[in-house]
Amino acid sequence: MSGSRSGQFRPGGRSDVEGKRVLVTGGTRGLGEQIVRLLAAEGARLATCARTADDLRELTASLATEGYGPLFTRALDITEPDRLEEFVLATAERFSGLDGVVACAGGARGRGLEEADARDWSLTWEMNVGHTARLVKAAVPHLRRAGGGSVVVIASISGWKPGPQAQYGAAKAAQIHLAGSLARELGPDGIRVNAVSPGSMLIPGKRWDRMRTEEPEAFARFAAEFPHGELVAPQEVARVVAFLLSDASSGVSGAHLPVDRAQNAPTPGGY
């Protein structure tokens, strides 16, 4: 089992998310996986989706081995019309309702302004803002019937601190604004909406981890963007997400919470 698949969390008594019915998009890798693992360890009833069925099976088996589960899953592309909405409905039917959703899936297409085309901008927008809006719209009737609930939108440091690529930063900035706007719109129904902006996370096998091993000098320069000299761990972000899903955060809505260790520039190139 690779490092990113190993268990990272153990339950430490009763939690404010215990028994809560939560759907997480993009839950098989990176931050999404750590969110699912933490919520599973704390007793939530979970559903997640991803594009690859094998990844979903592997995660489900891993959680079962650690004594957690069952995990309700579906392989789908979040940009496909109606597929995400169908999964939200299926989850609500399986769990007899919903208490929370986490819009974690996302991504970017294209490179710099002169290289990226209109389709790159459109796909980047749909993976981030479009998917979030569709997820929340599909979940609202079920959250409302449950008497309210919590929506957590995973944005990015790139949404509020400038860095390339512009299409990604613009989409993440829109997610932050969307969370604030929806918090006002859905507040009368008892539905809280918050955005979390992770800093640059050190995830096994991903960009910064590869830089650490392949370009140690460049990585050291980048790590200097963090006052403590260490990048953010996805588990640190997952704990904030769990808090926002929990009853302990009942007074928090419309907030934008950076989890970036006071990171300065979001990329090695600086501002």
Rank of each mutant, 00 (worst) to 15 (best):
S2N: 13
F9P: 01
P11C: 03
D16A: 15
T28A: 01
R29Y: 01
L31D: 07
E33T: 07
L39W: 09
R45C: 10
A53V: 09
D54L: 14
E58W: 00
L59K: 01
E66V: 00
L71E: 04
A75C: 11
L76I: 10
I78Y: 01
E85Y: 04
F87T: 06
F95Q: 02
A103L: 05
A103I: 05
C104D: 14
D117H: 05
W125G: 02
E126A: 14
N128V: 02
L135Q: 04
R145F: 00
G148A: 01
G149D: 13
S150A: 15
V151A: 02
S158H: 14
S158K: 06
G163T: 01
Q165W: 14
G169L: 12
A171E: 13
A173D: 11
Q175S: 02
S181W: 10
L182D: 09
D189R: 01
R192W: 06
V193S: 02
S197D: 04
S200N: 14
I203W: 01
G205A: 13
R207L: 11
R212Y: 00
F219W: 14
A220L: 10
H228I: 14
E230N: 08
E236F: 03
A242R: 15
L244H: 03
S249F: 06
D260I: 07
D260S: 14
A265W: 11
T267C: 07
